[in-house]
């Protein structure tokens, strides 16, 4: 298991959370017990991390106001604002 040093603060749907530096957004949320990341557009079904390699597009989130960001491919950063997808 990789050694993580620094703590990073970020928020998910306006809740303040902590992550480890070098973690992806999706992993940081998973560790904070947020498995459900958002819902599908049409039927509002819950979705979360699935493949963790940027291929399945199940983990899309709004990051710093940018919609449809692959949270499994994006490293968490200090002060990052993460929200369930707005589009």
């Amino acid at each position: 298991m990789s050694a993580y040093k620094e703590k990073v603060n970020f928020s998910f749907n306006d809740v303040r959370l902590e992550a480890k530096e070098g973690q992806t957004v999706a992993a940081a949320l998973y560790e904070n017990d947020y498995k459900k990341l958002g819902t599908t557009r049409k039927y509002q079904r819950p979705r979360g991390l699935f493949c963790a390699t940027g291929r399945c597009y199940s983990c899309l989130l709004t990051v710093n106001d940018q919609n449809n960001v692959l949270s499994c491919m994006t490293l968490v950063e200090e002060g990052m604002s993460v929200k369930s997808n707005q589009s």
């Binding site: 298991m1 990789s2 993580y4 480890k20 973690q23 992806t24 992993a27 998973y30 560790e31 979360g48 991390l49 699935f50 493949c51 963790a52 390699t53 499994c72």
Partner: peptide, 14 residues
């Protein structure tokens, strides 16, 4: 999740 995602979470993301 996929088994690969399980490995990534566990071994890479801690």
């Amino acid at each position: 999740i996929s088994v690969g995602a399980g490995q990534i979470l566990h071994h890479r993301e801690g």
